[in-house]
Simulated scan of single mutants.
Amino acid sequence: MSEDLEIKNKIAESGLINFDLSTLLPKGKRIGIDLKDFLFEGLILKEKDFREKISALNPEDYENSYLYIYNSADAIVPLWAYFLITAKLTETAKKIVFGNREDLEVLLMHNAVQTYDYTEMIGKRVLVKGCSDESIPENAYIELVEQLKPIVKSLMFGEACSNVPIFKN
Results as ranks from 00 to 15, higher is better:
A12P: 01
I151M: 13
L39T: 11
T119E: 13
G32A: 13
L16W: 09
W80R: 12
E105S: 12
S135A: 10
Y118A: 05
A75P: 05
I33K: 13
L24M: 03
L39W: 05
T90C: 04
H110P: 00
G32P: 04
I33G: 05
T115C: 02
A93R: 10
G123D: 03
E47P: 00
Y66P: 02
L39A: 05
L104V: 12
Q114R: 08
K129S: 09
Y66E: 03
L148D: 02
R30G: 04
K36Q: 15
E41H: 02
L107N: 11
N100I: 14
Y82G: 11
S22M: 07
E134W: 05
E102I: 10
D61H: 10
F83R: 09
I11C: 00
D49L: 12
L108W: 05
Y66K: 02
L24H: 07
Y70M: 04
E60I: 06
A81M: 14
E13V: 12
C131M: 06
L45N: 00
G15D: 07
I136G: 06
A73M: 09
E102W: 14
V106C: 07
K124A: 11
K48P: 07
V145F: 01
E13P: 06
L24E: 02
A73T: 03
K36F: 04
V126N: 01
I96L: 04
